[in-house]
Computed example of a mutant assay.
Amino acid sequence: MPLVSGHEVIAECTFRHLVAGAFNTTNIETTMGIVRAIERVGVPTFIQCAPTNAVLSGFEYIHDMVSRRLASCDVPVALHLDHGKTLQAVEDALAARFTSIMIDASEHPYTENVETSARARVMCGPDIALEAELGSIGGKEDEVGPDHADSTDPAQVSEFVDAVGCDMLAVSVGNVHGYAPDARIDFELLGEIQAASPVPLVIHGGSGLPEEQFARLHEFGVVKVNVASDLRNAMIRTFGEAYIANPDEVSLIRVSKNAVSAIADVVERRIRMFNPSTG
């Protein structure tokens, strides 16, 4: 089916008590693997790309690649801008027909975060779902990370969401970008944020959290969990193992197909972790 708005993914997941995975893509192998897993499990999903991922191809190529592959997929999928740090990134993704947007001004002071995020809301209009971030999530993605991490303050949540008009709120509750083996969700804090938030919540850093924590997220108003590092590692590992096994390997298509399978397995495993009812 054609790409759907992030609103549709949010609504269906909320109605079915599901948590959508949000999986970053950069190339055709990653895209193919993500969609293969989506078709296996049938859970509405976000496929996403950050500006740092799009430097090689541009957002237009990402849109065309994802939308072509989804033409034969029956599961609702939105194409999401991940960590749009500037309004120019938002404009570029909208021009490339992304159907869901994240504005991340969380490293700026609260007032500036509100002002920038509210401007992104106007740019998106009513048809494009908007995710904003309150609190600063630690760790690094594509070697880029905040100077420091700040937990989300529940006392600011309702005012922030109302002022921005966002449809999803990314929160900092112990989650960390990239691989962080010591990362743990503070469920007490997450519960306080849920009680204060009029919109569903988003957890970034889904590659480093322990499996048992994923199964609880739907209880706390979480509708979206971001995963990037796991997928990239699966692809790099596949190519690295192929080279180690045979330094003279020249069948790029065989190794690429193996990478697609490895990525699909990772994505399917993550979706089922988020949604234990799927088996």
Results as ranks from 00 to 15, higher is better:
residue 157 V to R: 12
residue 145 G to Y: 13
residue 169 L to V: 11
residue 141 E to H: 03
residue 114 V to D: 00
residue 147 D to F: 12
residue 88 Q to G: 09
residue 107 E to T: 15
residue 174 G to C: 02
residue 181 P to A: 13
residue 173 V to H: 13
residue 109 P to N: 14
residue 173 V to E: 04
residue 119 R to K: 14
residue 151 S to H: 12
residue 116 T to R: 15
residue 116 T to E: 02
residue 169 L to T: 07
residue 85 K to G: 06
residue 153 D to E: 15
residue 138 G to S: 13
residue 141 E to Q: 08
residue 120 A to E: 00
residue 157 V to H: 07
residue 162 D to N: 13
residue 137 I to W: 04
residue 111 T to N: 02
residue 159 E to G: 14
residue 101 I to V: 11
residue 142 D to I: 07
residue 111 T to A: 12
residue 174 G to W: 09
residue 95 A to G: 15
residue 180 A to G: 12
residue 169 L to Q: 03
residue 117 S to E: 01
residue 139 G to A: 05
residue 147 D to P: 00
residue 85 K to A: 09
residue 179 Y to V: 08
residue 145 G to Q: 08
residue 171 V to H: 08
residue 166 C to W: 11
residue 165 G to S: 07
residue 123 M to N: 02
residue 151 S to C: 01
residue 126 P to T: 13
residue 84 G to Q: 04
residue 118 A to H: 11
residue 85 K to Q: 09
residue 176 V to T: 15
residue 113 N to K: 05
residue 98 F to M: 04
residue 85 K to T: 05
residue 127 D to P: 02
residue 120 A to F: 03
residue 173 V to S: 09
residue 108 H to M: 12
residue 177 H to V: 13
residue 151 S to I: 00
residue 146 P to C: 02
residue 132 A to M: 02
residue 90 V to R: 11
residue 93 A to E: 01
residue 94 L to H: 11
residue 144 V to P: 00
residue 104 D to S: 02
residue 107 E to L: 05
residue 106 S to T: 05
residue 159 E to I: 04
residue 150 D to W: 11
residue 163 A to I: 01
